[in-house]
């Protein structure tokens, strides 16, 4: 198998190596990390016939420019409306193409979305921590953030003619400003009117937005008393409210414990869409019961599974497609029922 060598010409801040994430270590202070938008990441891998959690690159609005120094490799870009320029051919994310020796690939922010995922047909070589390449931004452990000038090696690099073309961007990968939460677990520390305010007033995302969380802007939420509760576990999706009454939603690289009360927790299937929103975007939180949250998440998982299973099927290669079109044109036309 051949390998491909890619030089990082430019990497904006928060461009990092990620895999599916290292779950199971929160008891040791380690959040799972992994992609901010797990759905788009799984799509970018599946579109190439890779395992859903194979190592890829998370690209922020800071953008990424790579130059292929050696070899050729097919790649997929999925997530947000990022712009993609491969050897001068301009497209948008949700595409599978091939990068050849001497060609440049440029990915920049586009019409919507905060993160896009670049995956390769092959094995992206990256250092592991606790069995995973996912980068934990607080410590830098794992594959790490990309720096201009570094090289990336793709081992067993393939060209996948059977995968080329557009990837359909499903509605469930696009933010709609609606986010469902289960209230609590520390809602008892808030004035009842605060919970109502949180649920009835749109909040805006601020630019205090990184892989650890996003601070919101909107009405202050009043705590019953100025208190610090015992430091206790945090989840990805916890909405914690600091003493200033401002809510923050904790995300992929969240600290694992904290002493600020949590007014609500975002349900898992809405976190990817929330993470794709941008500073100044407006978000409306709706409360659902724990039972409904389970039903919603299960329905979303079925929908996502069906989409990924369909996407996993190889498309015919260009030659096969041409041949089939010839056959259809020459033999079958007029025979359809």
């Amino acid at each position: 198998m051949s390998s491909a060598l890619l030089r990082v010409i430019h990497a904006g801040p928060l461009v990092s190596i990620q895999d599916g994430g290292r779950g199971g270590h929160m008891r040791f202070g380690v959040s799972a990390s992994g992609p901010m938008d797990r759905t788009s990441f799984a799509i970018a891998n599946t579109a190439l016939g890779q395992p859903e959690d194979a190592t890829g690159l998370e690209v922020s609005l800071g953008g990424l420019v790579l130059e292929c120094k050696q070899g050729s490799v097919s790649f997929a870009v999925a997530g947000g409306g990022f712009s993609v320029d491969c050897a001068g051919a301009k497209t948008t994310a949700w595409t599978v193409q091939t990068l050849h020796e001497g060609e440049k690939l440029t990915i920049r922010g586009g019409a919507w979305g905060s993160w896009t995922y670049l995956t390769f047909a092959g094995d992206l070589k990256a250092s592991k921590w606790l069995g995973h390449t996912a980068t934990h931004s607080m410590s830098g452990f794992g594959g790490g953030a990309l720096r201009s000038g570094q090289d990336i090696e793709i081992e067993s690099a393939h060209i996948r003619d059977d995968r080329m073309g557009d990837i359909p961007c499903p509605a469930f990968a696009q933010p709609d400003g609606q986010v469902r939460v289960v209230v609590g677990p520390q809602d008892q520390h808030f004035a009842p009117s605060s919970v109502a305010t949180f649920l009835n007033t749109p909040y805006k995302l601020t630019d205090a937005f990184d892989r650890m969380g996003v601070r919101l802007n909107g009405p202050q939420l009043e705590l019953n008393e100025a208190l610090s509760i015992p430091s206790e576990p945090i989840l990805r999706g916890s909405v914690q409210v600091a003493g200033d009454g401002v809510p923050t939603v904790l995300l992929a690289d969240h600290q694992t414990t904290g002493g600020y009360p949590k007014i609500a927790t975002v349900i898992s299937c809405d976190l990817d869409r929330l993470s794709q929103m941008r500073a100044q975007d407006s978000v409306a939180f709706t409360a659902v019961s724990p039972e409904d949250a389970i039903s919603i998440v299960r329905a979303a998982a079925r929908q996502r599974r069906a989409y990924l299973d369909e996407l996993a099927k190889p498309r015919p290669s260009l030659n096969e497609r041409l041949l089939r079109e010839n056959l259809i044109g020459g033999v079958i036309s007029g025979a359809e029922d």
Binding site: H25, R27, P233, T256
Partner: peptide
């Protein structure tokens, strides 16, 4: 999926496709 013990409480994290609260 995992248990996260803290000072006065612990968080039991589960797969919602397999079980429920």
């Amino acid at each position: 999926q995992e248990v996260v013990p803290a000072l006065v409480n612990l968080l039991v994290v589960f797969d919602p496709l397999e079980t429920d609260h």
